[in-house]
């Protein structure tokens, strides 16, 4: 697991004030919403804000694409990395 994976997991736990979850329990390729971690639509808004604050990422104005990036930790890592290489 890269540092970025861990960093994003910590960001999610902290931002969303999750109880009973530690980083080792968030699986890289498991869905974050509904099944898997079971996050909700408000969590999605919060993660969007946190990505902006921490990495300066503005989500593309397309819910479909955003939904893909929010699908798992791996997808989020990809989003942050692609933003960094710009």
């Amino acid at each position: 697991m890269s540092n970025l994976h861990l960093e994003l997991k910590q960001m999610i736990i902290e931002t969303l004030d999750l109880e009973d979850i530690d980083t080792s329990e968030i699986i890289n390729d498991e869905p974050l919403f509904v099944e898997g971690l079971g996050l909700d639509s408000i969590d999605a808004l919060e993660i969007g804000l946190a990505l902006q604050k921490k990495y300066g990422i503005t989500l593309k104005s397309d819910s479909e694409e955003t939904r893909q990036y929010f699908s798992s930790i791996n997808a989020l890592v990809e989003l942050v990395e692609s933003h960094r290489s710009k």
């Binding site: 999605a44 969007g48 989500l59 104005s61 819910s63």
Partner: peptide, 13 residues
């Protein structure tokens, strides 16, 4: 017809 799910969608729509 569509909902704005994220703040970005408001800007875009």
């Amino acid at each position: 017809r569509q909902i704005c799910q994220y703040p970005e969608d408001i800007l875009h729509q």
